[in-house]
């Protein structure tokens, strides 16, 4: 972990860009403070002696994660599409992404 956890404005904006979040100025200031506080706090983990690469087994010991690879048709296409903010026929509608030549 980095030594300093004081985040400057540009760092917050960079993280927001990676996370695809538009922030206003007040939010940038708020997150400078809050991100800094949390990152400062979690630095304590550096003190803990751990085994490199160790992790808990998330999957219960008897659960077999492999099952028959069989496609199941989801019949209610309409229900899925109707939740989209904009749709046309059987498609999700978005602003133009390819410039016309």
């Amino acid at each position: 972990m980095s030594e300093s956890v004081k985040l400057d404005r540009d760092e917050v904006l960079k993280i927001a860009r990676l996370a695809r979040l538009e922030l206003d100025d007040a939010e940038v200031a708020l997150f400078q403070d809050r991100l800094g506080r949390v990152l400062e706090y979690v630095r304590e983990l550096n003190q803990v002696k751990t085994e490199k690469g160790a992790s808990v087994k998330h999957v219960p010991r008897d659960a077999v994660s492999i099952r028959e690879d069989r496609a199941i048709e989801f019949v209610d296409r309409e229900a899925l599409l109707s939740n989209a903010p904009a749709q046309i026929e059987d498609h999700f509608l978005v602003p133009t992404v390819i410039e016309q030549s």
């Binding site: 993280i15 927001a16 996370a19 695809r20 979040l21 538009e22 922030l23 939010e27 949390v38 978005v94």
Partner: peptide, 23 residues
């Protein structure tokens, strides 16, 4: 679409945690 919808659609705590995770 991404930046504005997510920026306005999520509340402060959710944005904080998304950013923590992203970082």
């Amino acid at each position: 679409v991404y930046f504005k919808s997510r920026g306005k659609g999520f509340g402060a705590e959710v944005k904080l945690r998304i950013m923590l995770g992203t970082y």
